[in-house]
Design a protein around this nucleic acid. Structure first.
Lengths: 159, 159
DNA sequence: ACTTGACCTTATATTAGCTATAGGGATTAT
DNA sequence: ATAATCCCTATAGCTAATATAAGGTCAAGT
C-alpha cells in the first residue's frame, strides 16, 4: 500500500492541476503537506479526501471562503448543521437573483437587437443609434444599472 | 456656455465615478483629454457622449473589449453593421448558455439541500456527507464541472 | 556516463473591471 | 488661516485560478 502521493498524482486523482493544489495550500484550504528529502510535497489519503471535498464544493458553486467555513464545520462535528443549511440557502438565493438579473439583461439585448434587423452601413444602424442616444440611456435611472456591478462581483461563483 | 468639465462633473453627468473615467482612459476606451494649467483633466461634449456610449454598452453587458470594437465601428461609419449585429448575437448566445448553466447549478444545489431537511449535529448532516462522499463526486465525470470555470471566466460581463 | 523528458520547486505576472489606499497638490468657503 | 473638497499619481486589492520564468530532481534510454 503506497500511501505517499506526489502532487501530480493527487491532482490527477481529483481532476485538477498541481498548480491548483499549491494555490489551495497558499489560500489555507489545504494543509501544508510533509516534504520528502528532495523538497517534494507528499500527500496522504486524508489530503485526497479534503481535496475531493473542496472540488466537490466548487462544483456546487461555493466560493473558497464558503468552503473554508464548511471545512471548519467539518472539524467541529458537534456543531449544529444549521450553519451548513444556511450557507446552501444563501447560495440558492444568490443564484435565483442572478438568474433573474441575467434574464433581464437578455431581454434588454433582444430589444436592442430588434433595432437593426437588416444589414447596412453602421452610420444608419439602429443599434448604434440606440447606444449613442443619451436620452435612452438608462444608466442614470434604472436600478438595474447598479445590478450590473452586482452581477459581476457576486456571480454564482464569485465570493 | 461652459464646455470644459472637470472629471468629477463628467462622472456625475454619466453616473459613474472619476476613478472609473481614469480607468477607461488607461484602458484606451476614453481618449486622453487636454489638461489645464494645474494638470487637471478637462472634458468636452464629445467626451460626455463617448462616456455615455461606454456606460450604455456596459449596461447591456458588453465587455470592455467588445465596447472597444463598437467604438472603432463608430469611427468607421461606412462599415457594414453586420459586425454590430454579430457582437449582439454572440452576447445573447452567451447569456443563453450562461442562464442554462446557472439553472443547472441551482438544480444541483436544491438536490443537495434536500439531504438535510432537519437540524442536527454536523456529524450527521446529509449535506456534509454528500460533499464528503467521494463516490458521488461528479468532478471527474460530469462535463458540467468544466463549465464552472467557464461560468466564472465568461459570465455575462466577463470578457 | 550521459542526455532527454517528465516531473517537481519557487516567485512573479496575468486575467476583468473596477475599487481602495497612500501621499501629495490645488481650489473654494468660512 | 484653515478646513473641506476637489484633483493628481502610483500601487495594491478583489476571485480563482493560470501562465511564465528559471531552476532542481529523477527515471529511462542510448
Amino acid at each position: 500500500m503506497q500511501k505517499h502521493l506526489s502532487i501530480g498524482q493527487l491532482a490527477a486523482k481529483t481532476g485538477c492541476q498541481p498548480i491548483t493544489v499549491r494555490f489551495y495550500e497558499k489560500k489555507g484550504l489545504m494543509n501544508s503537506p510533509a516534504r520528502q528529502a528532495n523538497n517534494y510535497r507528499y500527500y496522504t489519503e486524508k489530503d485526497v479526501e479534503q481535496l475531493f471535498f473542496i472540488r466537490h464544493c466548487r462544483y456546487h458553486g461555493f466560493s473558497l471562503d464558503e468552503i473554508k467555513s464548511l471545512l471548519a464545520l467539518r472539524e467541529a462535528p458537534t456543531a449544529s448543521c444549521g450553519a451548513v443549511d444556511s450557507i446552501l440557502d444563501k447560495q440558492i438565493k444568490k443564484l435565483d437573483e442572478y438568474i433573474k438579473l441575467t434574464e433581464n439583461l437578455r431581454a434588454h439585448l433582444i430589444e436592442l437587437r430588434k433595432k437593426c434587423p437588416h444589414h447596412g452601413p453602421v452610420s444608419t444602424c439602429g443599434i448604434m443609434k440606440s447606444l449613442m442616444d443619451r436620452t435612452f440611456c438608462p444608466c442614470l435611472h434604472d436600478p438595474h444599472y447598479q445590478d450590473i456591478d452586482e452581477l459581476e462581483n457576486h456571480g454564482p461563483n464569485a465570493p
